[in-house]
Lab assay of single mutants.
Amino acid sequence: TTYKLIANGKTLKGETTTEAVDAETAERVFKEYAKKNGVDGEWTYDDATKTFTVTE
């Protein structure tokens, strides 16, 4: 399944996707990606669109 991340960070803005077996796995991947890019904010997830959003 393809999951999408929308990053609304102070230093990183944009979108990326990952293939994962479930939302929990995708969330781990995206949180690691955000951490590597210095983004720390509020996370939301929309199951209907398989989209995570992080906003600083």
Rank of each mutant, 00 (worst) to 15 (best):
T1N: 13
T2M: 13
Y3L: 01
Y3S: 01
Y3V: 01
K4W: 13
K4R: 13
L5P: 01
L5C: 08
I6S: 04
I6C: 07
A7H: 13
A7V: 15
N8A: 09
N8W: 14
G9R: 04
G9D: 04
G9V: 12
K10R: 13
K10A: 11
K10V: 13
K10Q: 11
T11H: 14
T11L: 12
T11I: 12
T11Q: 10
L12D: 05
L12S: 06
K13N: 10
K13V: 11
G14E: 10
G14I: 15
E15R: 08
E15N: 07
T16G: 04
T17H: 10
T17I: 10
T18P: 02
E19G: 05
E19A: 07
E19S: 10
A20G: 03
A20V: 04
A20F: 05
V21W: 12
V21I: 13
V21L: 12
V21R: 12
D22I: 03
D22Q: 03
D22F: 03
D22M: 03
E24I: 12
T25Y: 06
T25C: 07
T25F: 07
A26D: 00
E27V: 05
E27G: 08
R28W: 08
R28N: 07
V29K: 08
V29C: 09
F30I: 02
F30P: 00
E32F: 06
E32L: 10
E32Y: 06
Y33M: 06
Y33K: 02
K35Y: 11
K35V: 09
K35N: 09
K36E: 11
K36T: 09
N37F: 14
G38N: 09
V39C: 11
V39I: 15
D40Y: 14
D40H: 13
G41E: 02
G41I: 02
G41K: 01
E42P: 04
E42H: 13
W43C: 01
T44P: 00
Y45Q: 00
Y45I: 01
Y45L: 02
Y45V: 01
Y45S: 01
Y45R: 02
D46T: 05
D47C: 07
A48C: 09
A48N: 11
T49D: 04
T49N: 07
K50P: 00
K50Q: 09
K50E: 03
K50Y: 08
T51M: 04
T51W: 02
T51Y: 02
F52D: 00
T53P: 00
T53K: 06
T53A: 05
V54I: 10
V54H: 02
V54P: 00
T55G: 04
T55F: 09
T55P: 01
E56K: 05
